[in-house]
Design a protein around this nucleic acid. Structure first.
Length: 213
DNA sequence: AGCACGATTAACT
DNA sequence: GTTAATCGTGCTC
């Protein structure tokens, strides 16, 4: 159990939050009676930045709407939205109130609540439990009910704990994923941060490559 | 009111 | 590699 990240962590430039959130632990406290107080958690291994109305890849590029209102609010809250008719996506609101920006959490390394995750990701191998933004929400039981939730409240059901910082040599930076029809330069801005998977003892001198999915 | 599309995933050829 | 699933959102008429 580590200290929870305070609002100061999120009230910084979005690129800084996206880079430094790697290695931290996302924690979901279950509130359902059948699993009262159970913890599901994982180390954050991939995140992307979405920055303001001028970023044509950001939902806020249409301005303030009912959907994007949370991004215009104070930092340290969850922006959870629904897409493709079936998937929920989790973001952390960043920067200052009034400026719409957020960090999309794209991948985790599962740590706690493995049995619950396995049940929710039934039949899939462990590497595929939380290696996508929709999968994370499925595994942790995150949906629209958590949109706007304060990650820094004392009784928060969803929050982030401190963890070991990830050194630069373990992080690859590249373009954000899935922005099919977003115009340049936004489509290619290197605003995706990912912890490179490697065997712990590996030392092969490979140049980290900018991966794509 | 109608329409095109999406910060994806899983299944299929 | 290709594509169906499935519906909220924001735009156009």
């Amino acid at each position: 159990m580590f200290p929870r990240l305070s609002r100061d962590f999120f009230a910084r430039p979005t690129l800084t939050v996206a880079r430094t959130v790697l290695g931290r632990r996302l924690v979901r406290l279950l509130d359902e009676p059948s699993a009262k107080g159970a913890r599901i958690s994982g180390i954050i291994t991939e995140a992307e930045a979405y920055i303001g109305e001028s970023d044509l890849g950001c939902h806020a590029h249409h301005g303030r709407t009912p959907r994007t209102a949370v991004m215009y609010g104070p930092p340290g809250h969850a922006y959870v939205y629904f897409t493709y008719g079936m998937h929920w996506m989790l973001n952390f609101v960043t920067e200052t109130e009034g400026f719409p920006a957020a960090v999309l959490i794209r991948a985790l390394q599962p740590v706690e609540g493995l049995e619950i995750i396995a049940a929710r990701r039934k039949g899939r191998p462990q590497p595929e439990w939380t290696d996508g933004p929709g999968k994370i929400c499925q595994a942790l039981g995150i949906d629209g009910g958590l949109n706007g939730a304060d990650l820094c409240a004392t009784d928060a059901p969803l929050f982030v704990e401190a963890g070991d910082p990830v050194p630069d040599e373990c992080v690859t930076i590249g373009p954000r994923v899935g922005l099919i029809s977003v115009p340049e330069p936004w489509k290619s801005m290197p605003w995706r941060f990912r912890v490179e998977e490697r065997i712990t003892t590996e030392r092969d001198g490979r140049t980290p490559q900018s991966t794509q999915r």
